[in-house]
Design a protein around this nucleic acid. Sequence first.
DNA 1: GGAAACCTGAGC
DNA 2: GCTCAGGTTTCC
Length: 275
Amino acid sequence: MPELPEVEIARRNLVRWFKGHRVVESEADDTRVFRGARWKDFNALRGRLLSLERRGKYLLFTFEADRGLLAHLGMTGRFVRRPPGETVLYSRARFHLGSGEVIHFADARLLGRMEPCSASGLSELAPVKALGRDPLVDGLSPTELQEAVGDSRQALKVALMDQGRIAGLGNIHAAEALYRARLHPARAPGSLTPAEWKRLATAVHAALEFGLEEQRGEEPRYLKEGAHNGFLIYGRAGEACARCGTTVESLSQGGRTTHFCPACQPSHPDGKTRR
DNA sequence: GGAAACCTGAGC
DNA sequence: GCTCAGGTTTCC
């Protein structure tokens, strides 16, 4: 379920957890998380974590001895740090630190992905090479946004979630960005005006920054007990739009549910609403 | 395009 | 009991 902000928070936590500690042992279970990759190579991840990079929703671990790991949280994946001996539900892979603490990769639905490889080969892995610009890592100007998304023939929201165009936006933050930019999710990317690209670029950054603020902390907020919905539009179908009071609607795009305000986000640039 | 697939948990 | 879930891939 995690999108860019959640993955970035996971990255920051991991950097903190690994800092000053060596990995004395790594071990993983043979699960679907490794897909075709050689899961036993996970055991070779030892020593210091030299760097941890995020590109879109992927994490790129670099350990000593040219050992690397590509990780994706899927829908329910998460990294947690626990004292020695403590069990973690759905733990799929573990880093044992010199301090005795254990960093688990837990994933109930097994939709996450782990791929051990050489550190130098991380950037050459197919999923990584296919990624588009990361708004936080690479920046995303209105022009760059238009170049990445403007030639798509899919609905605007679907195009925004295409990781090959922009890396990191998922169902929630794409919807949040469109609401902030007052753009209808079904708009044709080719129809946006320069002013609209500018609004959208600003909105993408705002939505991601808001998400980062929301997710700060060790335990992923979205998995927390009783976490309330702090989003502007996501999950608010049937509620009144905070901006204009119109009832928020939903529609299905590319198999995902999109929420939007039919008044604030007109389907045409001239403001006419058509559905 | 869209739907179904991969999985389990949460919510109604 | 049924539906849905913040992701990605695969197959009509």
